[in-house]
Every structure is written in structure tokens, then in C-alpha cells.
């Protein structure tokens, strides 16, 4: 497959011996799993009678789904950017993750204060 910027690189292509893009991909996956863990904890407590916890619980699970699916796309984008000699930095993804985490922490605090 060939685009205007040349052949599209295969996502599993090895770019350097340090496997930087793959490690970054795995870091995104781990963070997604972290969100899933927090979501599971909150929902677990929600079913013990604290139904407010359903809201942050679902928010965390949504974040987990978003991060783990985005990680794959991000990996492809990173490999493509590196091949073209561009910076793989993407401020929107970073900002969105930071906002999601902050909102989740704030709802966590609110829930603790209310219970």
C-alpha cells in the first residue's frame, strides 16, 4: 500500500534496537489496564450498596477502553512519523489522558467525601 508520503510502514517493523515505539505502546496498554483496574474496584464497591460509585466506575472503564484501543492507532502513527523523520509527540492525546485522569481523581475524592 502506497500513500502520497511513500509506502506505509508495517506497524510491527523494528525501528531501533531499543524498541522504543513498542515500549511506548506497551506503556499505553499498561495505563489502560490501570484504568480498568480502578474501574473494576469502583464498580465492585458500587455493587456493595454505594451506587454513586457506578459513575466514576463507568468513567474509568470508558477510559480503559479508549486507551487500549487508541494505543494500537498511536503505535501505527508513531512508526509512520518516525519513518518520515517527524516527531511522534501528540499533545492532544497527552492532554486528553491528563484530563481524564484528573476528572477521575476528582470524582474519586467527591465520592469518598460523600460516603
Amino acid at each position: 500500500m502506497s500513500g502520497p508520503d511513500g509506502p506505509r510502514p508495517h506497524p510491527t517493523e523494528q525501528l531501533d534496537p531499543g524498541l522504543q515505539s513498542e515500549r511506548t505502546y506497551l506503556a499505553w496498554q499498561r495505563t489502560g489496564l490501570g484504568f480498568a483496574g480502578v474501574g473494576a474496584l469502583l464498580l465492585h464497591n458500587a455493587f456493595d450498596g454505594h451506587f454513586v460509585l457506578v459513575i466514576p466506575g463507568l468513567l474509568a472503564l470508558l477510559a480503559a477502553a479508549l486507551l487500549t484501543t487508541r494505543a494500537q492507532l498511536r503505535y501505527r502513527a508513531t512508526v509512520a512519523a518516525v519513518h518520515l523523520g517527524r516527531s511522534p509527540a501528540d499533545r492532544r492525546v497527552v492532554a486528553a489522558t491528563a484530563v481524564l485522569t484528573t476528572v477521575l481523581c476528582l470524582t474519586g475524592l467527591a465520592v469518598i467525601l460523600l460516603l
Binding site: D16, G18, Q20, S21, R23, T24, A27, T78, A81, V82, S87, P88, A89, V94, T97, A98
Partner: peptide, 11 residues
């Protein structure tokens, strides 16, 4: 690019 990716992983 390795520096950018390292920065991202630290984040």
C-alpha cells in the same frame, strides 16, 4: 524521536 517517546512514557 526516542527522547519524545521516553518523555511520553514518563508521563
Amino acid at each position: 524521536y526516542r527522547f519524545s517517546l521516553a518523555n511520553e512514557r514518563t508521563f
